[in-house]
Simulated scan of single mutants.
Amino acid sequence: MKGYHSEEKISQTVHQSHIPFKNLKMRNDSELSDGELQEAFAKGLLKPGLNITQDKPKTTANNVEGMKQCLVEFRRNLPWVERLDMSNPPAADIVAKAEGKLATQDSGPINAEDDFQREMYFYRQAQASVLEALPQLLKLKIATKRPEDYFAEMAKTDQHMQKIRKKLIMKQTAMEKSEKAKKLREQRKYGKKVQTEVLQKRQKEKKAMMASVKNYQKGMTDKLDFLDGDQGKGKGKKGAGVTKAAMNKKGPNAKRKFKDQRFGFGGKKSGSKWNTKESHNDVSGFKAKVAHGKGGKKFGKGGKQKPNKRPGKDSRRKMKNRS
């Protein structure tokens, strides 16, 4: 610790008293234990005031002659154009004069802790240096402005820049080839996708055509629009398969119409054929021959009318195809 006798000095005192230092245990690797210090103090090994802070005065050396000698040794008598050093006060504060205020240095010392005052002081001092140095440079015929056709010297040679240019061109060409190959892969994927969609569309159309043919054979439709192919598709997709919903919207087919005409529409009847009291008592239309099976040749045994013979299967198929 600063200002205190070091542990090394205490250990030297212990060694002088012929006490083996290795027997003294260290605490925290930097200090002796309290018991060991008390034991050493009781034996007179530690002197009074050994652990009292000692403030030593700080000595400073201001060797002016030596500094002047060093300055003479490294000073070189170079012309001003090689040094370009300026030592001048800051320029006048034009803004303060225009506003009728005193400049900072006129109003008092500059506060070094004030950032704004300090920076403005540096700025005005740089202005004063420029105002003083420009006339001297012009007097020495040294240009202070860059000409319009000035080209900065390249840090690298033309050969090196040509190599860089070739590498950049090769990199750009490789990128273009990569982009072109990427586009071709995308086009191939898109072509395969379109081809798959076309095949699926054809299969769907074929399936719809077969469904339409089956519906026509079963008598569920009497339209042949599905035979038009693509021409029917342009007119609301008539070539597609006929569904029950579409058939209901278009109306009943021929088979349904025939059954409705023959058997009626179902539901409650109008009751026009029901007997009433008057029709029950009216016997003017009664014919005994018809009622008792004596109507002639068109009646067989039992007075029942012979039903029509049903045609065969081939005949029914031919009749169905003709319709």
Rank of each mutant, 00 (worst) to 15 (best):
K244H: 02
R185A: 15
S30P: 00
R322G: 08
T243K: 01
G3I: 01
I142E: 00
S315I: 06
F226C: 05
Q105W: 04
A128K: 11
A246M: 08
M209D: 14
M161R: 15
Q305K: 13
K206C: 10
P307F: 05
S33A: 03
V72T: 08
K277S: 15
K180M: 09
V198Q: 05
K297V: 15
Y216F: 14
R317T: 12
A103M: 01
S178W: 08
L134R: 03
H292T: 15
L78W: 13
G44M: 08
K320R: 14
A291K: 12
K171P: 01
K237I: 03
K192F: 07
N77G: 08
D225K: 00
A42Y: 06
K25Q: 15
K259R: 08
H15F: 06
K309F: 05
K320C: 09
G264N: 10
S212N: 14
E186N: 09
G251T: 12
G49Y: 07
N321V: 15
V290H: 11
G239M: 04
K250Y: 09
V81Y: 03
E73A: 14
G285D: 13
V290K: 08
A40R: 05
N275W: 04
T13F: 12
R165L: 12
K294W: 09
A240L: 11
A92C: 02
A128D: 08
T53K: 10
N215D: 14
G35P: 00
L102Y: 05
K306Y: 06
P135E: 02
G49F: 02
T53R: 07
P109A: 04
M26W: 15
S6L: 06
K318C: 06
E7Y: 06
S30T: 15
T104C: 00
K47D: 10
L140A: 14
F286M: 05
